[in-house]
């Protein structure tokens, strides 16, 4: 069976309820926007293939429910994620404050070397802004992660954010391949990343390189 892609990256969107995770994903996968708020129930995903440095990368992006009652379902998905988008709403102070909680969640459930990125969504609503961009930057620097302000509605930075995260994941992976001294997989054979964490193996397996 011929593979239609070079990499498969699993990304996860987390953040408080109603910060716009589904909208960001909808914008990225369909390039559309829907203003009615329909809360996500449980978990959903979308797949979009992008091209980076001549490589086809499939991004399977998991969209989680922000509501507390779905927490048990959603945390199950942290493990396999290679990149996590932390989303808050710049018009909602609380959602920003909760970023710290979400980061703790990541530390608890996700694998150690997961790529993270922080997004301040709804940046088009300038007149309702509660969280300044500088505070966002500040927090991101504290945790050593990248930060961007986005707007799913106005289509600002959504594409950039996902590409940035994908590029970071890719370069980290390329570095690992280099450091482990393997140039490329044999023909017809899969190449399997060696990880410190063996229980993560099953998730990484699919990130094979032809």
């Amino acid at each position: 069976m011929a593979k239609t892609y070079d990499y498969l990256f699993k990304l996860l969107l987390i953040g408080d309820s109603a910060v716009g995770k589904t909208c960001i994903l909808f914008r990225f996968s369909e390039d559309a926007f829907n203003s009615t708020f329909i809360s996500t129930i449980g978990i959903d995903f979308k797949i979009r293939t992008i091209e980076l440095d001549g490589k086809k990368i499939k991004l399977q992006i998991w969209d989680t429910a922000g509501q507390e009652r779905f927490r048990t379902i959603t945390t199950a998905y942290y493990r396999g994620a290679m990149g996590i988008m932390l989303v808050y709403d710049i018009t909602n102070e609380k959602s920003f404050d909760n970023i710290r909680t979400w980061i703790r969640n990541i530390e608890e459930h996700a694998s150690k070397d997961v790529e993270k990125m922080m997004l301040g969504n709804k940046c088009d609503l300038t007149d309702r802004r509660q969280v300044s961009k500088d505070r966002g930057e500040q927090l991101a620097i504290e945790h050593g992660i990248k930060f961007m302000e986005t707007s799913a509605k106005a289509s600002i930075n959504v594409e950039e954010a996902f590409f940035t995260l994908a590029r970071d994941i890719k370069s980290k992976m390329d570095r690992k391949i280099d450091s482990s001294g393997q140039v490329s997989g044999k023909q017809g054979g899969g190449y399997q990343l060696k990880n410190e964490n063996s229980q993560k193996k099953s998730f990484w397996k699919s990130c094979t390189l032809l």
């Binding site: 069976m1 797949i47 017809g188 099953s202 990484w204 397996k205 699919s206 094979t208």
Partner: peptide
Amino acid sequence: EFLDLASYDWTISDSKGQASSYLMD
């Protein structure tokens, strides 16, 4: 969509000992 992610190596000499990740997902 999940099954589109499937990538079987049909000539593998031995199983990996556990189910494919896409299927687990």
